[in-house]
Amino acid sequence: MFDERRYQKCGVSVHSFNDGSLALHRKLGFTEEGRMRRQVFAGGTHHDAALFGITAEEFRARKP
């Protein structure tokens, strides 16, 4: 993505109740950049959506 397509940044939205996905994105080096409050309705209640991002430079620094 960063090399072949020359993207500068990758962004993703994760449901705040999805602990596994939140942990995975943090482990991959994504930074939580914000939250969209009460964005998702699931299981009869509203939840936040966590916004994560990683730049090309951050990705390359983690992967020599």
Rank of each mutant, 00 (worst) to 15 (best):
Ser13Val: 05
Met1Ser: 14
Glu4Val: 02
Phe2Gln: 11
Phe30Glu: 05
Leu22Trp: 03
Met1Gly: 14
Asp19His: 13
Ser21His: 04
Val14Glu: 01
Leu51Glu: 04
Arg6Leu: 13
Phe2Trp: 15
Met1Asn: 12
Lys9Phe: 01
Lys9Gln: 02
Gly34Lys: 11
Glu33Ile: 03
Glu4Asn: 07
His47Gly: 03
His47Arg: 11
Tyr7Arg: 13
Arg62Pro: 02
Ser13Ala: 07
Asp3Ser: 09
Gly11Thr: 03
Arg6Ser: 12
Thr31Ala: 11
Ala42Thr: 10
Pro64Ile: 01
Gly11Ile: 09
Gln39Glu: 13
Phe52Thr: 00
Phe30Leu: 15
Phe17Tyr: 15
Glu32His: 08
Gly34Arg: 13
Lys9Asn: 03
Phe59Ala: 08
Thr31Leu: 08
Arg35Leu: 09
Phe30Met: 14
Leu22Ile: 14
Phe2Val: 12
Ala49Gly: 05
Leu28Val: 04
Arg60Val: 11
Gly29Glu: 10
Thr45Asp: 02
Thr45Lys: 14
Ala61Pro: 01
Val12Ile: 02
Gly29Val: 07
Arg5Glu: 08
Asn18Leu: 08
Thr55Trp: 03
Ala23Tyr: 09
Glu58Thr: 00
Val14Asp: 02
Ala56Gly: 09
Lys27Gly: 00
Ala56Ile: 03
Ser21Leu: 00
Ser13Glu: 05
Gly20Asp: 07
Gly34Gln: 12
Arg5Pro: 05
Cys10Asn: 09
Lys9Cys: 00
Glu57Ser: 14
Val40Ser: 12
Phe41Glu: 04
Lys63Ser: 10
His15Thr: 11
Arg5His: 10
Ala42Pro: 00
Arg35Cys: 08
Gly11Val: 02
Ala50Phe: 15
Val14Tyr: 08
Ala50Asp: 08
Ala23Gly: 00
Ser16Leu: 03
Leu24Gln: 12
His15Leu: 01
Met1Tyr: 15
Glu33Phe: 09
Phe41Arg: 15
Glu32Asp: 00
Gln8Cys: 09
Arg35Glu: 06
Ala42Val: 06
Gln8Ile: 08
Asp48Ile: 05
Cys10Trp: 11
Phe41Met: 06
His47Asp: 03
Gly29Asp: 04
Gln39Ile: 02
Arg38Leu: 06
Leu24Ala: 13
Phe52Asp: 00
Cys10Lys: 09
Asp3Ile: 00
Ser13Phe: 14
Pro64Asn: 10
Ala56Gln: 10
Thr45Cys: 03
Asp19Trp: 06
Asn18Tyr: 14
Glu32Asn: 04
Gln8Phe: 11
Glu57Lys: 08
Lys63Val: 02
Ala42Ile: 07
Ala23His: 02
Val12Asn: 00
Leu51Trp: 12
Gln8Asp: 06
Val14Lys: 03
Ser13Met: 04
Arg60Met: 15
Ala42Ser: 12
Val14Ile: 13
Val40Trp: 15
Arg62Ala: 10
Phe2Thr: 15
Arg26Phe: 08
His25Arg: 00
Arg35His: 07
Gly20Lys: 11
Gly53His: 06
Arg62Trp: 04
Gly53Ser: 15
Arg60Pro: 02
Phe30Pro: 06
Val12Arg: 04
Glu33Trp: 11
Glu57Arg: 09
Gly34Leu: 13
Glu33Ser: 01
Gly11Gln: 11
Arg38Lys: 14
Gly44His: 15
Glu32Gln: 07
Phe59Gln: 01
Ser21Tyr: 10
Leu22Val: 08
Met1Lys: 14
Glu58Ala: 05
Gln39Ala: 14
Leu24Trp: 10
Arg37Trp: 10
